[in-house]
């Protein structure tokens, strides 16, 4: 048993070091001294100026409006999409509607479309319906695109809820809504939580839909701003850019840390 555990830990530690080395590079180069920066990433620590670089990143990049917008898009987008998706998954799994297959594929279809295909027609329809450069317009797009994966995940997770539970609830006289809230939601907590985290991250990191469907600084999501920090005409030093991206990544990282309680290991015994 102990040898087993030792082997597991060794494998994990080696893999972790491999996985962390690019993060190490990111951090080391993000905090490198900007004055002596030689415009090449390096393995060694060339100065350690996190505060100065973060400050410069904040001033240079004007991240505040984007951050504000991102919280709106992320929380509302992920929240609504997971909610709608779980409702749909519940109905397909527990309520036995007609044409289950059809509804599954209609909802899942968004996941199969190459997203670039959506960009220009959406611009066109948004422009003509007045949704262009509006918060709710972009939010609708995020919700719609985030639903399929959340739906797929919830549905498959709900399939693993035994039929007896469903039937018992039915015979107990629970309405559909009650069954959803009292049985399916609690039992799917971890799957829905995972779906929320992933879709929040996707929405948070989106660049192309933000660029195509919005233009004002107040409506635009964060990555549209971050992406302007690099390029042919830009003179911003790389450590400052990397710090800006780190600032942009802190909320998502934080969300995963507090979301870890959702993924309580089920195999504690025998380790």
């Amino acid at each position: 048993m102990k040898k087993d555990s030792l082997l597991k830990h060794s494998v994990l530690i080696i893999l972790s070091l491999i996985w962390l080395s690019p993060i190490y590079l990111l951090v080391v180069n993000a905090f490198a001294n900007v004055e002596t920066w030689e415009s090449n990433f390096d393995w060694s620590i060339k100065g350690w100026e996190p505060i100065a670089n973060f400050q410069q990143a904040w001033t240079v990049a004007d991240l505040a409006p984007g951050l504000k917008s991102n919280f709106f898009y992320g929380i509302m987008g992920a929240g609504l999409s997971v909610f709608f998706a779980s409702l749909a998954a519940f109905s397909i799994v527990a309520l036995n509607p007609k044409n289950k297959s059809l509804w599954f594929w209609v909802i899942y279809a968004v996941n199969l479309v190459p997203y670039q295909m959506l960009l220009l027609p959406l611009f066109e329809s948004f422009a003509s319906t007045g949704l262009y450069d509006t918060r709710w317009g972009l939010l609708l797009v995020y919700v719609a695109i985030a639903i399929p994966f959340a739906f797929f995940l919830s549905r498959n997770h709900m399939l693993s809820i035994s039929k007896e539970v469903v039937e018992a609830s039915q015979l107990d006289g629970a309405s559909k809504i009650q069954t959803y809230f009292r049985i399916f939601l609690p039992l799917s907590w971890s799957a829905l939580g995972a779906a929320f985290l992933f879709q929040f991250t996707w929405i948070w990191n989106d660049l192309v839909f933000g660029l195509t469907l919005t233009t004002s600084a107040e409506i635009r999501p964060l990555m549209s701003t971050i992406a302007t920090l690099v390029g042919q005409y830009q003179n911003i030093k790389m450590p400052v850019v990397l710090c800006a991206t780190l600032i942009a990544s802190i909320p998502t990282a934080f969300l995963y840390i507090i979301g870890q309680r959702l993924f309580v290991a089920g195999l504690k015994a025998g380790s």
């Binding site: 999409s81 709608f84 998706a85 409702l87 749909a88 519940f90 109905s91 397909i92 527990a94 309520l95 036995n96 509607p97 007609k98 509804w103 209609v106 909802i107 279809a109 968004v110 479309v113 959506l118 959406l122 609708l140 797009v141 919700v143 719609a144 695109i145 639903i147 399929p148 739906f151 609830s169 039915q170 015979l171 006289g173 629970a174 309405s175 559909k176 069954t179 959803y180």
Partner: peptide
Amino acid sequence: NQMRKTGASTYFFFIPAIICVLAIL
């Protein structure tokens, strides 16, 4: 046995998802 009925309310549950998806797709 309200849940047994595959009535309109069943479809009510996946209408929000369908509307969002179709509106965009």
